[in-house]
Nucleic acid binder design. Structure first.
Lengths: 357, 357
DNA sequence: GTGAAAGCGCTAACAA
DNA sequence: TTGTTAGCGCTTTCAC
């Protein structure tokens, strides 16, 4: 009893009377041509128009031409909303991150955006402002408006993630690995990075290290710290609470001086740069008096003075790869293996021989 | 021209091989409860369920309770796709930028994301990779999947923008003003920023300036350069082709030395930082031998050595404000006035008295 | 090859 | 207050 849709109604209010309501009153975007109108104009059924618009090969060339012409003339494009509903597919994927200001996530965003864009998919982005529970909520919400998602949630409890894993699928996790979660994860081998850093530092004769710790609860921070402890059995290690931003590192400079370390391992490049600046302001020579290392290799790291020794991680590669995985998942393939990217040590000017003393 | 918006494309798999198409087979997400099921379970009509889910006050408390319970039990949430179609509204806004790696656009992204998020709207993001025509295409496409958009398109020809203005509405333009385009724009008073910079520099005795030019075609670059020419009638100005990235600035260092300027005005903070580093590597003292200024005040500018003198522009404020404007537009209000934010001069260590010579 | 018709899941005008 | 009904615009069997 529904049958032929709004075709039958001969509209009375074409262009004449009421002014076009500015606000989105009715569902009708006013000017948009519909498949019905095109069908009418081309003298074919809606089904045929649909077939033509979707490039079905089973339409006679003649009709294809007629439909194309009509569509062109009416400036017609199929309604994405209607397709979503009919197809049960959105053509969109989503990315959830704690903080869009963080170069780490910016890298993923770029890689993902480019890869998904190339595949003709749109990208929905949301930021939790570092609130793990918010990440969960956003992820759930975003997932309902997309076909799959990429989740960066370094702080959310593993159980919480597992509890919603089903509802999130298909999805891939980045910068983190959660055993038991049914999703592929792309992460960084933080321990390997730290080991490289420590080897470099000890090779230079450093024995007293300070670690500028990242945010408590951050999975990355925990791994880096643990690796540092493990990798440095013969070393004296001071852990300084710090954070993840420039200012945190900057503020930690006095504490660094106070603890007497000859080398500082920053949680990331931002705290390391901040500390570097702070130290120099305090008259401490880098690397003559104190060596400093970062982590991540943000674009800026090359341009500090001296340039920052750090380990490089493939930020946008994570984004690209996340797309590949997601794509596979969306096609019903298995998620493949988890991968841990091995960071690469980048020795630059901020590290040097330990001061002999 | 348009007509077959990407639909035809959507079918040919861009992945080669005859892999299964992404997305669920049937429209049925398998497990999802529908409004009908809830209605049935609660023993009411679908309309009532709809009313309850939308918080209509005209439903008896008793029914509200029954519906709520049923919805809860079935783990029901209304289908966003169906609502889009029925409502003619997406609950989403879109942002188009040339480059997600640029701090300028990252700032807008953050501000917009937060503001829109707070209002319960989702955010679609796309990047044109600096291709102006691509921006136009992405904008058109994104707009069809959203209720409004924010466009950053510093290089697209004004006429091109005007030609699609109607189809983009409601939208707001950032970092640029296009007369005749029917959209509010939020931009930066580049001339004022440059004037402040020049005043600062001439006050320090500089008479020979070099300008590290941004990308040709960039509206911002054109304005800054013009302002520089205008503001410096008595000065000797050398324009050095450069770019917008760290490396561009870095590469320009030798040319800076070659031209004999005592002060360098960078198109933005990135080229300025790059040049700063390059100059110091060349043994040039900053600011003793050469002063350097940037533009934008990216987070990093405070942490160069010496810290960069620059002018600050309200990047995320632009994003927040863009949301406000868009919101007003979407409610049928007028776009309000265009605004030009006045940059604020930030004098830091990279500028000093001109070397007496 | 082409069209008729039955949805996709929800909202809203109109009755009752 | 609540239900009935007619769409929103597209896709997709299923006959012809």
């Amino acid at each position: 009893m529904r049958a032929s849709t709004g075709n039958g109604d001969q509209e009375q209010d074409r262009d004449g009377g009421g002014r076009p309501r500015a606000g989105r009153r009715g569902p009708r975007p006013a000017g948009a041509a519909t498949i019905s109108r095109v069908a009418e104009a081309a003298g074919v059924s809606r089904a045929t128009v649909s077939r033509v618009m979707n490039g079905s090969p089973t339409v006679s060339p003649e009709l294809v031409a007629r439909v194309r012409a009509a569509a062109e003339a009416l400036d017609y494009a199929p309604s994405p909303a209607a397709r979503r509903l009919a197809l049960g597919r959105t053509g969109t994927i989503a990315l959830i991150v704690p903080d869009l200001g963080n170069p780490l996530f910016q890298g993923v965003l770029r890689g993902l955006s480019q890869a998904a864009g190339k595949a003709g998919r749109q990208l929905l982005v949301a930021e939790s402002d570092e609130d793990p529970e918010e990440e969960v909520i956003l992820a759930l919400e975003a997932r309902r408006n997309s076909d799959g998602l990429v989740l960066a949630s370094p702080r959310a409890p593993a159980e919480r993630l597992c509890s919603i894993g089903e509802r999130l699928a298909p999805f891939v996790l980045v910068y983190r690995e959660v055993p038991g979660l049914g999703a592929p994860s792309l992460s960084i081998d933080n321990a390997a990075g730290v080991r490289d850093l420590v080897a470099h530092l000890t090779g230079l004769g450093h024995r007293r290290l300070a670690y500028l710790a990242g945010p408590p609860g951050s999975a990355g921070n925990a791994e880096r710290l643990a690796a540092l402890r493990a990798a440095a059995p013969g070393l004296e290690l001071t852990v300084l609470p710090c954070g993840s931003m420039f200012d945190d590192g900057h503020a930690a400079a006095p504490a660094v001086v106070g603890c007497g370390a000859s080398a500082v391992v920053g949680f990331n490049d931002m705290v390391a740069s901040g500390a570097l600046t702070g130290l120099r302001e305090l008259g401490v020579g880098v690397p003559e008096d104190v060596s400093i290392t970062g982590f991540d290799d943000i674009p800026f790291a090359r341009y500090t003075t001296p340039p920052l020794t750090t380990v490089s991680i493939p930020k946008s590669e994570l984004g690209r790869q996340a797309w590949e995985r997601l794509w596979a998942l969306m096609n019903g393939e298995s998620g493949g293996y988890n991968v841990r990217y091995q960071p690469r040590l980048l020795v630059r000017g901020s590290t040097g021989p330990a001061p002999s003393r």
